[in-house]
């Protein structure tokens, strides 16, 4: 076997190792997302907390879960995804303005 071939193989096994580690992180984030979902449902099902607490809490749970999806499941934490992040955060910013506008005019 030539040196370059051996080199390529060790590179490949290193990449696979990295990939497996990444998969473990994704599994952990899946577990955390399940937990966040259970907590959100439980808070509503228990019906003991005040509305003023529950609603911001549910928002927070949803935003954290969306972050897990973006960074771990959609690979936004990998290198070379700056442009993708810019596009989606541009969308999120416009979405925030849209929501804020609609909510403010309907509450006034």
């Amino acid at each position: 076997m030539t040196d370059t071939k051996v080199n390529n193989m060790s590179k490949e096994s290193f990449r696979r190792q990295k990939s497996r580690e990444e998969m473990q992180k994704q599994l952990i984030s899946f577990g955390l997302m399940i937990v966040l979902t259970l907590v959100a449902f439980a808070v509503v099902a228990m019906d003991t907390f005040h509305k003023g607490f529950v609603i911001p809490f549910l928002f927070l749970m949803a935003i954290v879960q969306a972050g897990f999806q973006f960074y771990y499941f959609m690979h936004l934490k990998e290198r070379g995804t700056g442009m993708a992040a810019l596009l989606i955060y541009g969308g999120v910013w416009a979405a925030f303005l849209t929501l804020a506008g609609l909510i403010v005019i309907s509450w006034w």
Binding site: L87, I88, A94
Partner: peptide, 26 residues
């Protein structure tokens, strides 16, 4: 394609935000 799908999803975010806003108002 990678650039395109994220561009598209940025737009989709605004579209769904509009529907969420309408829902919250009504």
């Amino acid at each position: 394609k990678f650039f395109g799908i994220w561009f598209f999803l940025g737009g989709e975010t605004v579209l769904f935000a509009s529907l969420f806003g309408v829902y919250l108002a009504l």
